[in-house]
Nucleic acid binder design. Sequence first.
DNA 1: ACTGAAAGATAGTAGGC
DNA 2: GCCTACTATCTTTCAGT
Lengths: 154, 154
Amino acid sequence: MQNEIDNVDLGILRLLQKDASLTNKELSFKLNKSIATIHERIRRLKEQGYIKKIVAILDRKKIDRNLISFSQVLLNDHTQKTLNEFEEQVTKFPEVMECLQMTGAYDFILRIATKDMESYHDFYRNKLATLANITTVQSFFVLSEPKSETAYPI
Amino acid sequence: MQNEIDNVDLGILRLLQKDASLTNKELSFKLNKSIATIHERIRRLKEQGYIKKIVAILDRKKIDRNLISFSQVLLNDHTQKTLNEFEEQVTKFPEVMECLQMTGAYDFILRIATKDMESYHDFYRNKLATLANITTVQSFFVLSEPKSETAYPI
DNA sequence: ACTGAAAGATAGTAGGC
DNA sequence: GCCTACTATCTTTCAGT
């Protein structure tokens, strides 16, 4: 079993990133391969970890997540212990959709989804700000989303 | 047709956000409803826009997107024309996965996915920096991803 | 609104090229 | 590695409650 990827695999990944509800039959037509071939390719792409998961993307406004905040966090120090503790605790908060350790002036960027500014404030005061070793938190809020993609162009 | 959502709908959304390859049969078992009911609920959730799309999430490192940058962009002015032009042009770049207009010191945050620092540099010099009306670009790079979720806890 | 069952479509498997 | 053909399973529809 080789670990290289060809144009058929790329085509499958390209299409499934945009719409994973496409059937093998539809893929086989678009990519000029038999259904069985498509089936086997998808099995391999999952097995080899190219496809991590298939998920439903929801309209966040419909489920009352109207406010997205990006919060840049600076910690007091950067010992293994402090970093691990912060990560462990902050990733437990359901409001935190994303926690990324970054280069630059701040240590982490958090993407935080809440119902509105009031619930963000509540999260900030009663959850985020209670964590140990935080020096600074700088928050920005999303005004509009001209582009938001999960699909990598490949 | 009512636009309210009940516990069965919530259960479906909760499960499909995590794994949209679940069959109606599996959902019907987990939620104690008939297959036909699940089927009808999902149809409605799509029709009403709760479920925007079903997508495959890829492992970006497997497809050679090893570097993620967050770039904060400040524009020269904030006329309708300048904002629209910037949005229109920056969203066309395939490297730009996300373009968010923000409150605060900067106007936009971009999430940029490239192969490595060299290809980021190429993008920056030959694409992003060529756009009109940019005052400042401040970029940070992802070191690690302690948490990265597409599923809202509901 | 929910259900069970029928009909049609798709996924998954196996054997041959 | 790709295909056709087969079987199991799933989706989709619909009459009945």
